[in-house]
Every structure is written in C-alpha cells, then in structure tokens.
Amino acid sequence: MKITDSKQIATYYKALVEKNENFVGIFFVGVKTTSIFCIANCRARKPKLENVTFYTTFKEALSEGFRPCKICKPTQNANQAPKEVEKAIELVKQNPKEKISDYRLKENDVSAKVVRNWFKKNYGMTFHAYQRMYRINTAFQELQSGKQTTETAFEIGYESLSGFGYTFKKIMGNSPKNSKTDTEKTTVLISRLTTPLGAMFVCATENGICLLEFADRKMLETEFADIQKRLNAVILTGENKHILQAKKELEEYFEGKRTVFEVNLEPIGTEFQKMVWEGLHQIEYGKTRSYQEQSEHLGNPKAIRAVASANGMNKISVIIPCHRVIGKDGKLTGYGGGLERKKWLLMHEDKYNPNKEESKNELRLF
C-alpha cells in the first residue's frame, strides 16, 4: 500500500538518504520527477522529500506507473539473499549431511540472526528447518539406493535412530524402512530464485519442471497441495539438473537473450488442462492471442471459459506463456502473477522480439 503516515515517511526518507541496507525490501520509493522507483540502498542521487512516494510492495509502484531503477534494480535486489545468507546456503550445499550451527555460521563471519530473519521472511521457515529438509532429502536418496538406515542416520548428524525416524516420517510421510521399498513415492525438489519481477519458487521432479510461480501468488499453497496429491509426492528443498537449467534459461530470458525455453517440463493437471497448456507453447515470443483465438486454435471455439480457466491453473509461469493470452479487445486481463507483471512480460518480449517487424501485436498496454 501507499505509505501516508508522516512519521513512517520521515523514517523511510532518512533510510533512503543514508542508503540503509536494513530497509531493503521494506519499502519501495517512487520518484515523481523521473517516474522511476528504487530500494533503500540505491546509489543514485537522492530526490527531495516532496518528490517521493513510498510503497510497501514494488507491484504497487509498478501499478502507479513507475519504472524500475536501472541502478539498484529494485524488483530483483529487494528479494536477493544478502551475502551472509548466500554464504549460509552454500555451507549447507557443501555439507549436505552436516548440521550448520550458529557457532559454525559465526566462524564463517555470518550472523545467525540475519540468516534466521531472512529465511522466515522469504521461505516461511527457519534456517534449521531448511537444513533438516535438505538433510532428509539426502537421506531419502541414499536409502533409495540401498544404504542402511543406521549408517545414513548417523552420517547426517542424528545421534539416535528414533530421532532420525521421527523427523524422516514427519517430512516424508513414511518411515525410513518403508521408504526403501516405496518406489511409488515421488520427490519434488523446490528452490528459490530472484528475477526482475520478484522472487519465484521453482519445483522439479526427476522428469522436469512442474512448478514455477511468483513467491507472492495467492494460490501457491493450493498448487503445492495439488502437486503432492496428484504425484503422491513430498516436496523437499534442493536442486536437480532441471532446476539448474531452468534458472540459467530464465536468467537468459530476462536479459533478452532467450526467446525459447528448452528445459524439460512435467506439467501437473488434467488432460484438458495439459492440452490447453500445450497450446500456449504455440504462441510465439513477442505475439499474443485472445482467449477466443486460443479456443479456436484448440478446435473448440465455444470453450472460451474452460480454456480461460485452464490458463489460470497453469503452474509453470513464464515458461508456459499464459501471459501471452489477452482479451478480445486487445486489453490485458487475468494473470495469477498480477497484471503489472503481465504487462512487463509482454513489453519485455516486444522489446527483444527478433521478428518485431513481422509482429502484428495490437496489445493496448495503457
């Protein structure tokens, strides 16, 4: 929301002038004279108090017509993990079987408080819960490969089999012993990434990407539950080759260097939904299609509402380009990530479209 309290405005303006790192992500400031918005630690010349407006989210700044600052990159860096947090995450990845204590963090010049606060705000869990998920994921993979439960438990830092068994069952929904033979259980890995449009979560099975959503999407918990139910899956923190490839391709996409995604996908939904999502793939980069045109393309011109509903249930944003479907009159309509993001994505693709001269995109962005 727009900040109107005078005391809060004074506090935020002081933080802006002092480039206070502690306020990064707490507020976004729109500069009326330049029509850009920034985060607290921006290095650009500071505007006068009467020329700024403060917001609690960057989506509000975008909807008010402000553009992201090219110096501080607010939509990306406001959600970027601080260096201390990145160092803590790297310690976990390098030592997947070890519990990283507060003392260990201190040895590596990392503040345990900073790490705890960031994880709670950006992951919705504690740093130690994140570690437990990572270690249990490692244990699950080893048990599946035939390793003994006792050996696995002690290697990942548990001092008793009962403690390991309790934690394992709580996260996996099954005991370590039964997990050895439970080949029907699917593991879905989840990781976080930052983009110019904010933080996103990406999930993948061993077959491909099954979810890519903005972290603030309201239906996110429902989508996680749907994936777990349909795949008989457990979602654990981690990365595989598909997630790493998706992160690389998304970075290239947002830099304007990629127009087609090549990462493997495993869309989770009904057969009708999958058919609609496959149709979305056929909308070329830099172009759009109305809901009616999409229905006609799928061979059922009267199924406009059903097609629109299936678009809204797409769990793999950006890569499956539901943002390229617009209203019949050329106006923007419906997008789970918010119309501001939809507008940004279409403008981004229009800017970097290699076949722009051939495009007859009549999108009304304003």
Rank of each mutant, 00 (worst) to 15 (best):
T11H: 04
T11M: 10
Y12K: 06
K14A: 14
N22Y: 07
F23Q: 14
I26L: 14
F27W: 07
F28V: 01
K32W: 11
T33F: 04
T33I: 04
T34F: 00
I36E: 11
C38R: 15
R45W: 09
E50I: 13
T53I: 12
T56M: 10
F58K: 06
P68Y: 03
K70L: 13
I71R: 14
N77Y: 11
Q80K: 15
V85T: 01
N95D: 05
P96H: 02
K99F: 15
K99M: 05
I100M: 00
S101C: 00
S101H: 03
S101Y: 04
K106S: 15
K106P: 02
V110H: 06
S111T: 07
V114E: 09
N117A: 08
W118V: 03
F119E: 04
K121Y: 04
N122R: 10
G124M: 05
A129Y: 11
Q131E: 11
M133N: 14
Y134A: 08
I136K: 03
Q144G: 13
K147Y: 08
Q148K: 13
T149K: 15
K170W: 03
K170Y: 06
K170H: 12
K177C: 04
T181P: 01
T181R: 12
S191M: 01
R192F: 00
L193E: 01
L193R: 02
T194D: 07
P196W: 06
L197W: 01
G198H: 00
G198L: 00
M200I: 00
F201R: 08
F201C: 06
C203T: 08
T205G: 01
E206R: 09
N207H: 05
G208C: 01
G208R: 03
G208E: 05
F214K: 10
R217P: 03
K218E: 15
L220A: 02
R230F: 03
R230C: 04
R230G: 01
N232R: 07
A233Q: 03
I235C: 01
G238F: 10
N240V: 00
I243T: 04
L244C: 10
E249N: 00
G256R: 14
T259I: 14
V260S: 12
V260H: 14
T270H: 01
E271V: 10
F272V: 14
Q273A: 08
W277P: 03
Q282Y: 07
Q282K: 15
T288P: 02
S290T: 15
Q292W: 12
E293W: 12
E293K: 09
H297P: 04
H297F: 15
K302H: 06
V307M: 09
A308W: 13
A308S: 15
G312K: 08
K315L: 12
S317H: 13
S317P: 03
I320A: 05
P321D: 04
I326A: 11
I326V: 15
K343S: 05
W344K: 12
M347L: 14
N353Y: 06
K356S: 03
K356V: 02
N361Q: 05
E362C: 01
F366C: 11
